[in-house]
C-alpha cells in the first residue's frame, strides 16, 4: 500500500503543469523515502528529474517500492479539478492498476475521488554522472524566465556566458543581435540578486524553446540554480519545500 497526503495540493498542480509539455507518460517510483521520476522528452534533448521527499508530506506510507506508470496528460486533467486550497491524497494498492486521487476542500466541505488508470511503460533510466560544474548561477527564477521569454523574440538560441563577475545572455537573429548582462550582487531585492560560483569561464548555447518550458517551474521556487560546464548538459534546479525539480538540457554545438 502506498498513500501520501499533501496538505498543500497546489504544489502538485504546479509541478505537473511544469512538466506536462515536456513529458507525457512517465514512471513514478514510490519508495519509503520519496516519490521520484526521471523522464526524457520525446526528442531526447531534455530530461526532467523530480524528487518529492516522503518526510515533507503530512502523511506518508509506502509498504513496498513500486513503479507507477502515469499519463501526465491525464493526471494534469484530473488535477485541474482540484481546488488551489485542496489537500490531495495519492493512493495505490500494491501492484496497482490505478492511482487514486482524493481532493478535499479546506473545510472538508467537498471531497472528490478519481481513479487514474496506470500504464505499463518501458523504464528508461539514464545514469547521470556526478559532475563538478565550472559555473553555478543562482538568480531569481522570475527574472531568468523573463529574460528567456524576451530574448525568444529575437531568435531561438540563447548564448550563455558566465565568468567570475557576471553572466551574459546573448542572442543573434535576423533582426539583429543583443545581450543582457547581469553582474553578481547580493541585493536585498530578490529580483536583482545574482550569486555566481565560478571556477572556469563558460560559454554555451541552448534552445530557448526548452528553457521557456523549464521556466514554468518558476512558480515553484523564487530561485533557479543553473549549473554549467563546457559540452555537458546544463542543469536548471528549482528547489521547494517538498523536494526539487531539475531539468537537464543538451547544449547546442557549433557546426
Amino acid at each position: 500500500m502506498f498513500e501520501a497526503l499533501l496538505g498543500n495540493g497546489l504544489i502538485l498542480k504546479k509541478i505537473i503543469e511544469s512538466i506536462k509539455e515536456l513529458v507525457t507518460e512517465v514512471n513514478f517510483e514510490v519508495t519509503s523515502e520519496a516519490i521520484s521520476l526521471q523522464a526524457m522528452d520525446a526528442s531526447h534533448v531534455a530530461l526532467v528529474v523530480l524528487v518529492l521527499r516522503a518526510s515533507e508530506f503530512e502523511e506518508y506510507r509506502c509498504d513496498r517500492p513500486q513503479t507507477l506508470g502515469v499519463s501526465i496528460t491525464n493526471l494534469a486533467k484530473l488535477l485541474k479539478i482540484a481546488g488551489n486550497d485542496d489537500s490531495i491524497i495519492l493512493r495505490a494498492e500494491d501492484e496497482a492498476h490505478v492511482l487514486t486521487l482524493v481532493f478535499t476542500g479546506k473545510n472538508n466541505e467537498k471531497m472528490c475521488e478519481f481513479n487514474l488508470n496506470l500504464l505499463t511503460l518501458d523504464s528508461e533510466h539514464l545514469g547521470i554522472p556526478e559532475q563538478e560544474y565550472s559555473a553555478e548561477v543562482t538568480m531569481s527564477s522570475s527574472e531568468f524566465s523573463r529574460i528567456c521569454r524576451e530574448l525568444t523574440q529575437v531568435t531561438d538560441t540563447l548564448n550563455l556566458s558566465v565568468d567570475k563577475e557576471s553572466v551574459k545572455f546573448a542572442v543573434s537573429g535576423d533582426i539583429g543581435t543583443g545581450s543582457i548582462t547581469m553582474k553578481a550582487n547580493n541585493s536585498d531585492k530578490s529580483e536583482e540578486k545574482l550569486i555566481l560560483n565560478v571556477s572556469d569561464t563558460v560559454s554555451m548555447a541552448f534552445a530557448l524553446r526548452y528553457l521557456n518550458l523549464f521556466n514554468k517551474a518558476s512558480s515553484l521556487s523564487d530561485e533557479v540554480v543553473l549549473s554549467l560546464s563546457p559540452e555537458v548538459p546544463v542543469v536548471l534546479k528549482f528547489a521547494f519545500d517538498l523536494g526539487e525539480l531539475k531539468y537537464f538540457l543538451a547544449p547546442k554545438i557549433a557546426e
Partner: peptide, 14 residues
Amino acid sequence: ANEQASLRRFFDHI
C-alpha cells in the same frame, strides 16, 4: 547555426 546535441550522448543508457 548551432546543431542540437542529444542527451543520450552525455548519459549512459542503462
